[in-house]
């Protein structure tokens, strides 16, 4: 039996993941434990790894170590970010805002030793995300009107069944109605970019009485480009087949 490496969210593997049991050499070589704990394994590879570690004390201990490492890092960074806030306050108190990063860098490198520049970028990106979350929340609280419902047909053979869609000029909800072909009680849905980078995934989707699955995405989740949406019938372990849809998201049309 030849084993193939598991793939990190489909895009990292030079070859597709193949079914089959895992062994420790492969788990170590591809850091399957880390990929699993950080949520970077594909659902198939997660399933393979879970089947392996269910009765493997070594892997369970490795997962625990990875989880503790992740938790410890996350808290250390949070504590340091709080100290960075303190650095800003010190600098502000000194009346020299330009000194803020110097104070922070000193705090971080002396007391913590975390990579300072990465931390700066990370905090900036977290602040940006927080702001975006506030904006998204206020958008989400608006009643939805004229919500477009887009019926998607499955991808068969060539690329002719790509659905092209322009982003709305103002951000809003897009509802996709999908009629998957292998009928299942529940479905797993995976949205990937053209480069096969997974951007969203959900399990336990249930069809309506007409057999259709409805998924709403906020338009702000999309950058213009090609996306693939895959619906897999049945729970992850009893997949009865999947249906793929291809979406082309175009830039928002300019206001008339």
């Amino acid at each position: 039996m030849e084993n193939h490496p598991p793939s990190a969210d489909r895009s990292s593997s030079p070859e597709p993941s193949s079914p089959g049991p895992l062994n420790h050499a492969l788990i170590e070589k591809h850091d399957v434990v880390g990929l699993y704990v950080t949520g970077r394994l594909t659902p198939d590879d997660s399933a393979r790894f879970e089947e392996h570690y269910l009765d493997c004390p070594e892997c369970i201990a490795e997962i625990q170590a990875a989880e503790r490492l992740q938790r410890g890092l996350s808290r250390a960074v949070a504590q340091d970010a709080a100290r960075v806030g303190l650095g800003k306050m010190i600098a502000r108190a000194l009346g020299r805002p330009g000194m803020a990063w110097v104070a922070m860098a000193a705090l971080l490198s002396v007391a913590v030793g975390l990579p300072t520049f990465w931390m700066q970028g990370r905090i900036a990106s977290l602040e940006e995300r927080l702001l975006q979350a506030h904006v998204d929340r206020s958008i989400a609280l608006q009643p939805g009107i004229n919500t477009p419902v887009i019926e998607l047909s499955p991808l068969r053979g060539g690329a002719s069944s790509t659905y092209s869609l322009s982003l709305p000029p103002t951000p809003g909800w897009l509802v996709f109605a999908l009629a998957p072909e292998p009928m299942g009680e529940t479905y797993e849905a995976i949205l990937t970019t053209a480069e096969d980078r997974k951007i969203w995934q959900a399990d336990g989707l249930q069809p309506d009485p007409a057999g259709k699955i409805h998924i709403s995405f906020h338009s702000s989740q999309f950058e213009p480009g090609i996306y693939h949406l895959e619906l897999i019938a049945g729970p992850a372990e009893t997949k009865a087949g999947s249906t793929r849809y291809r979406l082309e998201i175009l830039k928002a049309a300019a206001h008339p």
Binding site: A8, D9, S11, S12, R40, Q70, L73, S74, P115
Partner: peptide, 15 residues
């Protein structure tokens, strides 16, 4: 150190 932090806390692709 940066590698560990980005891997465990970020969502960057390992590549």
């Amino acid at each position: 150190r940066e590698l560990l932090i980005r891997y465990y806390l970020g969502d960057d692709h390992p590549r």
